[in-house]
Design a protein around this nucleic acid. Structure first.
Lengths: 211, 211
DNA sequence: GTCTATAACGAGATAGAC
DNA sequence: GTCTATCTCGTTATAGAC
């Protein structure tokens, strides 16, 4: 039945959230899902294949709402609010945690790494598209590679999630500082020709090529 | 003998690097160290205790050089170079990878989380001290919480390391963008009173309190 | 489609020979 | 201080009853 498959997928997500990738097994997943352990192998063939399916399913479930919210953003200030909002929601749902744990588990498991990379790309793409749209013509776009910025943002959130597991206060301070950094980008974005000139001069001094 | 202890610690680090926290066990560690599996328990009592010892030992081994290099930094531009340099070295030695995997494994294991937090603090402290020293009196210090910035930097590097495992090209682009962001901080730092005024205005608009 | 039973193996951990 | 042997349990995976 399709319901059992879904229960296993939900159970896998929940198990990763609660016990991390190291504490995730066919038995712990089945216990969380409330089904028999053998069903993992009947429906998915192996634990790894279930994890891959769960990772992609969880991502796809959220993607529509994620993209729609970002599509409505019409300025850097709004993007900051949307980012905070979306990040809080995905965190509450545990999607960031799951992605982080999948990435950790992907170390030395190329099969898992491929599935994780696919999920990661699904998250990064709409962020990159939004940044692209908002920063076109801005002096910031001259300095920063937009694709790289989107990936750095994602990496930062992943790192913060892990950080939070061992030092909640530190993670909170770090997140607040990321917010402030966005304000800094905004300031430079707004300063106009003066900032652009200063940036270009600084870039020549720093010896950095144009993106 | 003390040599066996050291071999186990080195073996633990190497095993985490190669197989990740999920693939790290008393047996895999002992195999890497070239000693008998039972010695893990004789010398450290449990696998977890070995991991805790290894994490702290690896951190302490590098801390002196890390602090000395940062102490010699005398400007933001120099800090950027030092950061790139130190990060490359720690990455090559696998310390970032180990920390990331320990953080992932700390999810749902409070004992491991405590040890990981201690190692993390050892890394963050000298970074925070250096930022504190360099940014004193800068307009940037008005905007950013220095401790939060140090933690955000660390979290970013952790996230990047995991990112690299599943998408090396993306991680490379993200790292390059972090470099560029540092240049942006430098620009604001150099702009002086004009930037400071713009920042304060923006802060009032954004409704963000003073740090 | 789901369950029980079980095989085959790796895990953490201990006892005791050397 | 180190190794072999062993215990017990958890894990992946399969076979077969229902």
């Amino acid at each position: 039945m399709a319901e059992t498959r879904q229960r296993l997928i939900d159970g896998a997500i929940e198990t990763i959230r609660q016990h991390g990738i190291a504490g995730t097994s066919a038995r712990t997943i089945a216990a969380t899902a409330g089904v028999n352990q053998a069903l993992v192998f009947y429906h998915f063939g192996s634990v790894n294949d279930l994890l891959k399916a769960a990772c992609l399913a969880a991502t796809r479930d959220r993607l529509d709402q994620f993209e729609q919210r970002l599509a409505g953003v019409d300025g850097l200030r709004d993007l900051l609010a949307a980012g905070r909002e979306l990040h809080a929601e995905e965190r509450a749902r545990g999607n960031v945690q799951v992605l982080a744990q999948m990435m950790a588990g992907s170390q030395g498991d190329p099969e898992l790494a491929e599935a994780t990379a696919a999920a990661l790309r699904l998250w990064v793409a709409p962020i990159r598209a939004t940044l692209d749209r908002l920063l076109i013509g801005s002096p910031v776009a001259d300095l920063l590679d937009i694709a790289g910025l989107a990936e750095a943002l994602c990496a930062g959130f992943i790192g913060l999630e892990l950080f939070e597991g061992v030092d909640p206060a530190g993670a909170e301070a770090a997140l607040a500082t990321l917010d402030r950094l966005a304000i800094l980008v905004e300031v430079v974005d707004d300063l106009g020709p003066v900032a652009r000139k200063a940036l270009r001069a600084k870039l020549r001094k720093a010896g950095a090529g144009h993106p």
